[in-house]
Simulated assay, not measured.
Amino acid sequence: MPSRLRSALSAALIALACLLAPCGALAAWAAYGLADTGVYVTTMAPLSADPNVRDAVADTVGAGIMDEVGDRADVRPMRSAVRPFVQDAVRSFTRTEAFRAAWDAANRVLHDAVLQALRDDREGDVTVDLAPVTAQVKQRLADDHMPLATRIPVEHTAVNVLPAQDLDRLRKGFHVLEVAGFWLPVAAVAFALSGMAIAVRRRRALTATALGTALGGALLGLAVVVGRNLTLADLPEEARRPAAGAVYDALTETLREAAWLLVAIGLGVALTAWLSGRWVHLVRGRRVSPAPVPDPAQPPTRVRA
């Protein structure tokens, strides 16, 4: 194969590998990180201590309890008097070990419900029941001897997580991610090795691959930042943005680490390849010693016959 054709083919394979590297990291994160219930629950667990998340949960649960209280005729006259007690009780509950246990359990139930809906062919909205959390808040109010606490209804309230009309689109995307999460990283490695193998100057090809991988990692990190801004900007309630930002940061922490890892590995390999090239050039220069130059001040030596 001519050298020019080898160089062009090598450059194309290396460019394709550098393009697939960040895409493979993104697909693997979605397929193997977000789709694992244990990993998801472990990732979300620290958020139970985040003040913004606790406030958002307290407002949501408190509003749900007050809506249920408003439906009771015997409690409705004291609605305005009960509201501060309910809010204080809910906020106090979010600082207990019971809330952390309920938080983990709710996230596990939520993730299982979404994952099952994405992998099955069932129809209908994906919902989560908040009755267990309401029951614990009610018990805490009763322990604090709040009037009419025992009359607060604990009903199974279905919170819509995924609407039915979006399930088909999400299922297709999820199946694509499951396939891409495995094959994209494999393809990226295969293209990179092939491009370096057929290259005319393999050290230069290795350097280009490393720098391209580092650039892909930087673009992946930038995409995470842009995605965060777009996600928070789409929220209708500005007060919920700090809590949503905390959740987004927790979910994308592994992805950010993968981006930094690509940058570090790429720059490290590129630097190593450059230093090794300089070292080889220096060693070769020392081996080839120049021929001695005659001194013009000394007369040439005559050879006697």
Results as ranks from 00 to 15, higher is better:
residue 175 H to Y: 12
residue 77 P to H: 05
residue 136 Q to W: 01
residue 37 T to Y: 04
residue 296 P to G: 10
residue 180 A to C: 08
residue 6 R to P: 00
residue 264 A to C: 11
residue 70 G to S: 11
residue 202 R to S: 13
residue 41 V to H: 03
residue 192 A to Y: 10
residue 216 G to D: 10
residue 286 R to V: 12
residue 10 S to Y: 06
residue 57 V to Q: 07
residue 140 R to C: 04
residue 11 A to E: 09
residue 50 D to V: 10
residue 75 V to F: 05
residue 260 W to G: 08
residue 186 V to C: 06
residue 218 A to D: 07
residue 95 R to E: 15
residue 224 V to C: 13
residue 27 A to I: 05
residue 75 V to H: 00
residue 42 T to F: 02
residue 13 L to E: 08
residue 257 E to F: 07
residue 262 L to Q: 10
residue 272 T to L: 12
residue 152 I to A: 00
residue 190 A to V: 15
residue 27 A to F: 04
residue 25 A to E: 01
residue 108 R to F: 01
residue 217 G to C: 10
residue 284 R to N: 14
residue 58 A to L: 07
residue 291 A to F: 09
residue 282 L to D: 14
residue 269 V to K: 03
residue 45 A to R: 13
residue 135 A to V: 04
residue 206 L to W: 05
residue 35 A to S: 13
residue 148 L to A: 08
residue 267 L to S: 04
residue 127 T to R: 05
residue 258 A to P: 00
residue 129 D to C: 05
residue 107 N to R: 01
residue 211 L to Y: 12
residue 108 R to D: 15
residue 295 D to K: 02
residue 288 V to P: 00
residue 2 P to S: 15
residue 25 A to I: 02
residue 66 M to H: 06
residue 212 G to T: 11
residue 264 A to F: 14
residue 193 L to R: 03
residue 228 R to V: 14
residue 108 R to W: 00
residue 145 H to N: 12
residue 67 D to G: 05
residue 70 G to K: 05
residue 294 P to A: 14
residue 122 R to S: 14
residue 170 L to C: 00
residue 142 A to M: 09
residue 149 A to C: 04
residue 122 R to M: 06
residue 278 R to V: 11
residue 278 R to I: 09
residue 14 I to D: 03
residue 211 L to W: 12
residue 158 A to G: 03
residue 210 A to L: 05
residue 134 T to K: 01
residue 116 Q to Y: 05
residue 124 G to L: 07
residue 130 L to E: 04
residue 51 P to A: 15
residue 291 A to Q: 09
residue 187 A to I: 07
residue 27 A to M: 04
residue 20 L to F: 14
residue 239 A to E: 15
residue 80 S to N: 11
residue 142 A to F: 09
residue 204 R to A: 15
residue 134 T to L: 11
residue 179 V to S: 09
residue 289 S to Y: 09
residue 119 R to L: 06
residue 178 E to Y: 02
residue 120 D to R: 02
residue 140 R to G: 07
residue 110 L to I: 09
residue 55 D to Q: 12
residue 251 L to T: 11
residue 279 W to H: 08
residue 176 V to D: 06
residue 44 M to W: 06
residue 234 D to C: 04
residue 211 L to I: 15
residue 190 A to P: 05
residue 142 A to V: 13
residue 229 N to S: 13
residue 259 A to I: 07
residue 136 Q to D: 14
residue 202 R to N: 11
residue 158 A to S: 08
residue 57 V to R: 00
residue 164 A to Q: 09
residue 52 N to V: 03
residue 41 V to A: 10
residue 98 A to I: 03
residue 247 V to Q: 04
residue 184 L to A: 11
residue 27 A to D: 01
residue 146 M to I: 14
residue 162 L to V: 12
residue 283 V to Q: 13
residue 101 A to M: 08
residue 95 R to T: 15
residue 42 T to E: 12
